[in-house]
Design a binder for these strands. Structure first.
Lengths: 195, 195
DNA sequence: TAACGTAGAGAACGATGGTTCTCACGTCAA
DNA sequence: TTGACGTGAGAACCATCGTTCTCTACGTTA
């Protein structure tokens, strides 16, 4: 009844369905069925499907980055925080409903055809990249490393989705560790590469 | 008139349109208009749109891997061949109609909803990974490295698409060089990391 | 109680799209 | 020539879907 509640229910249904089956495969009537929010209300809250899609990506972005930050921030050491990103990816990949990166998927589906969706994807990836840069900077490591870790993380997301496996997170983590060590000044801890 | 010619024309149109605008945004009638192949003929050659999609991905897979191999094989040194992969990615990203990886895009759009398409994507990524493993093995480097380079390459494709920039290829190439050097036994050439 | 505004259920509308059908035309074999 | 066949153009069919409309029921207020 409360508009705010209906909005959250609509977004809950949108997230489950859009993420699980893709956007174009889900009709507004499916959203209604899954959310219990009538079509009339849906169109009051979101004047077109595209608005609902953008709102879904926005809310998921906040939650996704929140969960990531919560995980990494629980580590003391700055360098550990950098590597914890990949541990967290592994936990994410292991979630039973994991189906790849919502933004990469949306971009593949609508990036060429909906500018608002494309911009949402760019904003999310920009923010993720910025977050990595912060972690890397806190560890006293150069910004170049952040860009490289970003590529590893994106590659892990794609590969985990396609191969339906969480293993790419660990693989990316091992590569990340090697890069971190390669960039570290005066590397005195001496763990040999790759083990 | 020749069936084989019509098939190629249909696939040409499918490739341009599906890759450029996404699959669900392109109707069979668009394919007809762009190819000059009548609907009747189209449905003789491909009994359903899904077959056309799979055939498009199959043919593109052969060409894509062919072009990659042609480029890397032109390098003498085995280790150079490994790194040449990222140079080639840069050339690909700079093509004016570049719009990301066709398979990643298709997976995001239809992976959850069409098993044949999902399997096509898995097959392509498996073959790409296998190719990297061959290059890495020829250079006397461990298979683990191939997996890591694969993640870098996938990440570069995604990021180049979203950011509409070819720069991720160079960044991935720098990371790849560092990993190759880290894995190299008795590293006597001594180029310091990152420059 | 009466009048009113709002909401939900679901029908309706209009467009699109995958697939099939019609029909007129040309080709080739007998 | 004739008849069977294959073809192209495009209409037709049928389902889906985004979006809007209708109608009924209910809650609120005077």
């Amino acid at each position: 009844m409360d508009s705010a509640v209906a909005r959250e229910q609509a977004l809950d249904a949108a997230e489950t369905l859009f993420y699980g089956r893709g956007i174009q495969s889900v009709g507004m009537d499916d959203i209604r069925g899954a959310s219990g929010v009538s079509l009339k209300r849906l169109y009051q809250l979101f004047p077109a499907k595209e608005h609902l899609v953008v709102a879904y990506l926005e809310r998921r972005d906040l939650r996704w980055r929140g969960r990531l930050a919560e995980y990494t921030d629980s580590h003391e050491d700055a360098r550990q925080r950098v590597l914890a990103v990949f541990d967290w990816l592994g936990e994410w990949f292991r979630e039973p409903d994991f189906r790849g990166c919502a933004w990469i998927n949306s971009y593949g589906e609508l990036g060429a055809v909906s500018e608002p969706v494309a911009e949402q994807v760019r904003a999310h990836k920009r923010a993720f990249r910025k977050y990595l840069e912060g972690l890397v900077d806190d560890a006293g490591l150069p910004a170049e490393l952040a860009g490289q870790l970003h590529l590893l993380a994106e590659g892990a997301m794609v590969t985990a989705a396609v191969e339906r496996s969480a293993e790419p997170a660990a693989r990316a983590g091992r590569a990340a560790r090697m890069l971190v060590e390669a960039y570290s000044p005066s590397d005195a801890n001496g763990a040999p590469a790759g083990h």
